[in-house]
Each structure stands twice: as structure tokens, then as C-alpha cells.
Computed example of a mutant assay.
Amino acid sequence: MTMLEADIQKQYPDFSLDISFTAAAGLTGILGPSGCGKSLTLQTIAGILQPDRGRIVMDGNVWFDSETNINLRPQLRKNGYVFQSYALFPHLTVADNIAYGLKGRPKEEIRAKVADWLKLIQLQDFGRRYPSQLSGGQKQRVALARSMITEPRLLLLDEPFSALDQHIRRQLEVDMLRLIGEHYHGVALLVTHNIEEAYRLSEEGMLFHDGRVLQKGARADVLTRPESVAAAEILGIENIFHGREILIDQDGILTIGTERFHKIGAPLSGVAVHGHTIEIVSSDKTNEPGIKIGVIERVVPGVKDGTILVNIGGLTWRVSVRNTDSFHIGQAVHVSIPAEAIMPLYH
């Protein structure tokens, strides 16, 4: 089974990278704030940077081992790398850029492979153009084809869409899913700041924080159900309460602000609640479990969904709503907060 094993330590004056994980075939999304070590990790795996200590193994082949002084050059690791800035060679044509990694192979084989990939990225009439004659989206397609044409066992994608307009990003996401799904069977790591992008493209997810792996697992678990306060903040969960904002009494009953909720079975560092799991309900449901009464502090319209800020038990809760027109500041509302919507944070 195709597998990447990475155990990397690298010390900088004001930052420490200490990353350890395995990644199987398929696409793993790496999400985290700026400066948390995402791109540094890709660069050390690719051989662009050398770790101080650790081990990197791809399919049983050791690429780096500080104990045995093994450190393969980037060219020998033969991975594909797609940069945010495209990194195309400006003096080479589109066809020559794509063919760059095939040096030394028979000319007919190179010509046929390039023609196939130009067709796959829907640029079959652009082979003789230069990067300066392409749009940003076209450049990134070329960069992706150049990285995949050599059939690498490892594909490293370092925020490949961040420099593109929104509508171009969505189209390229579709293209990438198609190309990787149909023409790639190795390990792919995608670095991104965009949780929606990570969710759409990835099968597995990893959260990075301060040079460490904070959480790793199946996409749905990692990207929607954080295990820590830091993970909840990275994911942008609308409601995060911790410290003095929460209390668990001797009977295990959770209190958030001054409002009592359900029984919790273990000590917590905090709780998180997605805004879309909370619902504004009619007053005739007051006696149902999980119904709290609050007062609207602020109304924030949105293109698709809006947000209303509601004071419940002395704390501000953010509630996602489809239409904000019927809400106003000072309005009393009944809010349904189901027990299953409250996610425990353990560290």
C-alpha cells in the first residue's frame, strides 16, 4: 500500500517544527493558520529544506534519516510539487514546461505524453504559447500537468488556488478532482487556508497549529468535529466557550454562562457549537428540551446565510439564519440548542 511516513523536526530562532504523521494513497488536506508550518512541512518532504532531525519514508524507501545521514536530493525523490506562484519556466513553451520532468526519455514518448496531458487539462491548442500568454487558471493547469506527467508517488500541492479569483478556483477544483481521481494513485498532500476547499477536495484531513499536528483523521471528523479549543478556532466554529465561561458541577451538568445544559461525562477544556446547528424556533416550543430564551444583540446580513448574535445566559451566541430581515436588535427569541450540537473540547 502506498504510504508516506514523515517525522520531522526543525528549529528556527522563533519557531519549532515538530511534525509526525502518515498519509496513505488519496488526497489529505492540511489546514492551519499562517505560520503554523504547513509549507515548511511540504518543503522538507520534497527535499527543498533539510530537517534537523527525523525520518521521511515513501513506500518503504528512505528519503531522509538523520540517524543514518541519508538525505536524497529533490531530483531523486521524484515527487510532484505545485506551487502557489505556478513556478513555470518563462522561457519555455507550455509544452516544454509540461515535458520538463521527462528529460532523457524517447522523443516520441515525450511528445505523446505531452499531447495527452494538454488534452486532459483542456489546453490542447496552447502548447506553443508561453506562460506570459496564459491566464492564472491556465498557468496552474500547466503546473499541475507538469507535476503529474512523471507519475510521481507523492504529489505536493502548496495552496495552488490561493492566487486565483473565486470562480476560477471552483473550476480548477473540479479539474483537479477529475485529474487526481482518474489519473493519479499515489499520496497527495494539499495545503490550504480554506476549510471548504479542504472538505471538497480531501479524503483525509490534518490540522496544524504552532508547528504540530493538532488533529488527523477522516475529513468529516477533522473538519467538522474539533477535539480542542485550538482546532475549533482553526475551523472557524462560530461558538467556542472555555475557561470561566463553562462549568461542570458535581453531577456532571454543563453550564454555559448562566444556562444549564445536559450532562457531560468527562472533564472538558471547552465546548464548541456550529452556528448552523442552532435554530430560532417559535415561542410555543418553549417547553421542549434545549430551548433557551435570548435577546438579539446584533444582526449581520449575508449573501447566502446571515448571522444573528444572541445573548443567552450572559454570553453571545452566533446563530446562522437564512434570512435576517425578520430579526432586530433587542428582540427576544427562543433558541433551540440540541444536546448533540454541543461538541466537547478536551484540550
Score class of each variant (00 low, 15 high):
residue 249 D to P: 04
residue 277 T to I: 08
residue 310 V to W: 00
residue 304 K to R: 13
residue 334 H to S: 10
residue 257 G to K: 00
residue 280 I to E: 03
residue 259 E to Q: 12
residue 251 D to E: 14
residue 322 R to A: 11
residue 234 I to H: 06
residue 300 V to T: 14
residue 309 L to T: 05
residue 314 G to H: 09
residue 241 F to A: 05
residue 239 N to G: 08
residue 340 E to F: 13
residue 328 H to Q: 11
residue 317 W to N: 00
residue 258 T to K: 07
residue 315 L to D: 06
residue 285 K to F: 14
residue 320 S to I: 09
residue 281 V to Q: 06
residue 297 E to Y: 07
residue 318 R to N: 15
residue 294 G to I: 08
residue 337 I to V: 11
residue 240 I to V: 15
residue 283 S to R: 12
residue 263 K to S: 11
residue 262 H to K: 07
residue 265 G to R: 03
residue 281 V to A: 04
residue 244 R to G: 07
residue 295 V to W: 08
residue 260 R to G: 00
residue 266 A to S: 14
residue 250 Q to R: 09
residue 284 D to N: 14
residue 235 L to E: 03
residue 334 H to D: 02
residue 240 I to K: 03
residue 250 Q to H: 11
residue 303 V to G: 02
residue 281 V to S: 04
residue 295 V to Y: 06
residue 309 L to F: 08
residue 236 G to Q: 00
residue 237 I to E: 02
residue 325 D to G: 05
residue 326 S to K: 11
residue 323 N to H: 13
residue 332 A to C: 12
residue 266 A to K: 14
residue 277 T to H: 14
residue 276 H to W: 13
residue 247 L to H: 13
residue 316 T to W: 07
residue 244 R to P: 06
residue 333 V to H: 01
residue 296 I to Q: 07
residue 313 G to L: 03
residue 298 R to E: 15
residue 339 A to G: 09
residue 320 S to V: 10
residue 308 I to W: 06
residue 316 T to I: 15
residue 240 I to W: 01
residue 256 I to L: 07
residue 281 V to M: 07
residue 301 P to S: 06
residue 326 S to P: 04
residue 251 D to Q: 11
residue 286 T to D: 11
residue 267 P to G: 07
residue 268 L to R: 08
residue 269 S to H: 15
residue 325 D to P: 01
residue 263 K to L: 10
residue 242 H to G: 01
residue 310 V to Y: 08
residue 283 S to G: 00
residue 268 L to Q: 03
residue 270 G to Y: 06
residue 299 V to D: 05
residue 266 A to P: 02
residue 288 E to C: 02
residue 259 E to A: 10
residue 303 V to R: 08
residue 338 P to M: 10
residue 272 A to K: 00
residue 293 I to N: 04
residue 265 G to Y: 01
residue 334 H to M: 05
residue 319 V to E: 02
residue 293 I to R: 13
residue 300 V to K: 15
residue 260 R to I: 04
residue 301 P to Y: 07
residue 274 H to N: 11
residue 296 I to D: 04
residue 307 T to N: 13
residue 249 D to L: 07
residue 245 E to G: 05
residue 273 V to E: 01
residue 273 V to S: 05
residue 340 E to H: 14
residue 339 A to H: 08
residue 279 E to C: 09
residue 332 A to M: 12
residue 238 E to Q: 14
residue 324 T to G: 03
residue 248 I to N: 02
residue 300 V to I: 15
residue 241 F to P: 02
residue 292 K to L: 12
residue 299 V to L: 06
residue 322 R to N: 15
residue 312 I to N: 00
residue 304 K to E: 06
residue 287 N to P: 01
residue 261 F to M: 07
residue 338 P to F: 06
residue 304 K to M: 12
residue 258 T to M: 06
residue 253 I to S: 09
residue 311 N to Y: 03
